[in-house]
């Protein structure tokens, strides 16, 4: 197992290099970092521009440039942002922490309720409860997150305040302006709405996965064997049904980080929540290459990491799978 993990980690290095090279290419072509720099800093001297090109590896030759960038990235010589010459790492670190907090909260809430809803639906397929859950989930995945964000914000933040004097959930940030220090209650209140919006998507998706997976399992021969043993329905469901039904769901969950991060980006933007999404949209809008590249590296690395987690959890849940 350990050897497998180490080998996979070793293998992820070339993948990471290849994908970051593709990202580098895409950003070079798509955002023209040098032009962006000149636009943001119109009075920059020739030497300044050359220095910017050198440290970011923006040579006319893409391959050479990439390796230059890579060397500086690894040795920790990161260029400051083009706007305001901010240091990149502290900004990235904060964004990561904030997103991790929102993402974890939403994922935990979402998967928990999603799995429960899926199980409830699968227990009596075709019943009224199943139709209700399944239809709600369908509606849930059909509504893009920014739409639910706008509508919920309008209702709970703006109109709630008009009707009841105080908004139920604030609409932006982690804390109110000027607040300092740690306040759990305040933080939860600020995070509630974005969490709900990301969680709705996750609940909708996972209740459908879980339902169909559990239905497959319920019709399998070993469930009939379990029933023929005369054990309780609950035990049949939990010991024999759930464990098997979770195998595909867990795998999908770990592979799904991309779409969860996608939902986070959109939601963060709407709530001005200072996480990875806001960071990305801001720096992408500015064409801020020094900010963008490390962000991309983090995203690619976490996708690879979750892929690995998917495979490991798959093998852990299913004894038929051997990690070689």
């Amino acid at each position: 197992m350990l050897r497998y993990i180490l080998r996979r980690l070793a293998w992820s290095v070339p993948t990471l290099l290849l994908v970051t090279f593709l990202v580098y290419l895409a950003l070079r072509i798509g955002t023209d970092p040098v032009e962006s720099y000149k636009r943001v800093n119109p009075r920059a001297s020739r030497a300044k521009i050359q220095q910017y090109i050198d440290i970011n590896g923006l040579d006319p030759n893409f391959v050479q440039g990439y390796f230059k960038w890579l060397k500086n990235f690894i040795t920790g010589e990161w260029a400051p942002s083009i706007k305001g010459r901010r240091e990149v790492w502290p900004a990235l670190k904060d964004a990561m922490a904030n997103t991790l907090r929102l993402g974890t909260a939403a994922t935990v809430v979402g998967i928990f309720f999603g799995l429960i809803a899926g199980v409830l639906a699968a227990l009596r397929p075709g019943g009224r409860r199943d139709v209700f859950i399944n239809t709600s989930a369908f509606v849930g995945i059909s509504i893009p997150p920014f739409i639910s964000a706008i509508l919920l914000q309008l209702l709970f933040a703006v109109y709630w305040q008009r009707w009841f004097g105080e908004s139920l959930f604030p609409t932006s940030g982690v804390y109110p302006a000027g607040h300092s220090g740690f306040d759990l209650f305040l933080m939860l209140k600020f995070m509630a709405l974005p969490t709900i919006i990301v969680a709705i998507q996750i609940i909708a998706t996972y209740s459908r996965y879980m339902r169909s997976s559990l239905l497959d399992v319920m019709n399998s021969d070993y469930m009939r064997t379990a029933r023929s043993k005369g054990i309780s329905e609950r035990r049949i469901l939990i010991k024999h049904g759930m464990r098997n039904a979770l195998i595909p769901v867990v795998t999908i969950a770990a592979l799904d980080v991309g779409s969860i991060v996608g939902g986070l980006i959109i939601t963060e933007n709407i709530f001005a929540y200072p996480g990875m999404g806001l960071y990305f949209l801001k720096s992408f809008g500015d064409g801020d290459f020094p900010l963008l590249m490390p962000w991309m590296v983090v995203i690619v690395a976490s996708i690879l990491l979750f892929n690995l987690i998917a495979d490991i959890s798959y093998a852990w849940l299913d004894p038929r799978i051997r990690l070689e």
């Binding site: 021969d221 064997t225 029933r227 023929s228 005369g230 195998i247 299913d318």
Partner: peptide, 21 residues
């Protein structure tokens, strides 16, 4: 009654056992 007084075995032994236990 099931499993105590009355037991049943089925045609396909390959799928009759739970793969994860």
């Amino acid at each position: 009654v099931r499993g105590r007084l009355l037991s049943m075995i089925f045609q396909d032994p390959l799928s009759a056992l739970n793969p994860v236990h």
